[in-house]
């Protein structure tokens, strides 16, 4: 077992009755790496990710996340990762500060920690004037950045982002990726699923899932070479049609 990797997965499998949703996938993700987790709808991405974040028990195989075993140490895994869903889930009827307070609190941060981190977050995002507004009244792009910052509040070693850019405009997407880069540069591992193939190009390495298996895994440049393709989009289509 390689523990200096952020994520280490070996033959991870999930079956629902006769149906194999995730079929013995194996991969590793290094510290500070931006790892793109791609696949068509129904390919098993979400199921695989749920096993890694400790809310679904694998049927067989092994996986270490942030140095902890997902089978037996799910609680420690949860404490050391951050997660942001495609819904940018925050409480609409709470203010920015209250949201930060609540989510910081459930990760066991102390009051002073929460205060200083919330202040930091507000300065970083430049949202001083709306601090006391309910989150529901903010534009989607702001909610997205806020959800990301809240997921990072407890300084997780790894952040899992489930389609983090759905529904926002290209400029906001670009800005969001800048936040991701900055975070990765600080040593946080980023595990991201996406539908946008141009975003796949921003990742250090990319895996593509087809029918529960990982059919390709490499840097975007290598993948394009391997599949003789112009873009990641073409790589993806070639794999899907195989």
């Amino acid at each position: 077992m390689n523990t200096d990797k952020s994520i280490w997965v070996k033959d991870l499998t999930k079956k629902f009755g006769d149906f194999t949703a995730v079929d013995a996938i194996s991969f590793e993700v290094g510290k500070g790496e931006i790892f793109g987790f791609l696949g068509a709808n129904g390919a098993g991405k979400t199921t695989a990710m749920k096993m890694l974040i400790g809310i679904s028990k694998p049927t067989s195989g092994a996986a270490m996340v942030a140095g902890y075993d997902v089978f037996h140490q799910a609680d420690l895994v949860k404490q050391n990762i951050g997660y942001m869903s495609q819904k940018f889930a925050l409480y609409d009827d709470l203010t920015i500060k209250e949201n930060a307070r609540f989510f910081g609190g459930i990760y066991g941060l102390t009051n002073t920690e929460i205060k200083s981190k919330t202040q930091q977050l507000i300065t970083d995002l430049g949202i001083q004037e709306v601090v006391n507004q309910n989150v529901g009244s903010l534009p989607l792009g702001w909610k997205q950045k806020l959800a990301f910052s809240v997921a990072l509040l407890h300084e997780p070693k790894i952040v899992f982002l489930d389609e983090p850019t759905g529904g926002v405009d290209p400029i906001t997407r670009r800005q969001f990726w800048e936040m991701i880069y900055k975070q990765a540069h600080n040593g946080t591992t980023i595990f991201v699923t996406t539908h946008y193939m141009d975003e796949a190009e921003y990742c250090d390495r990319v895996s593509i899932m087809v029918d529960g298996r990982i059919d390709a895994l490499d840097t975007p440049a290598q993948l394009k070479k391997q599949f003789d393709a112009e873009s990641m989009n073409e790589v993806f289509l070639k794999l899907a049609r195989k």
């Binding site: 949860k78 997660y83 869903s85 819904k87 889930a89 925050l90 989510f103 066991g108």
Partner: peptide, 14 residues
């Protein structure tokens, strides 16, 4: 519905 349940389940709260 708003997706926060997922966030809560991923958090260390059981």
């Amino acid at each position: 519905e708003i997706g926060t349940m997922e966030i809560l389940l991923v958090s260390p709260l059981n």
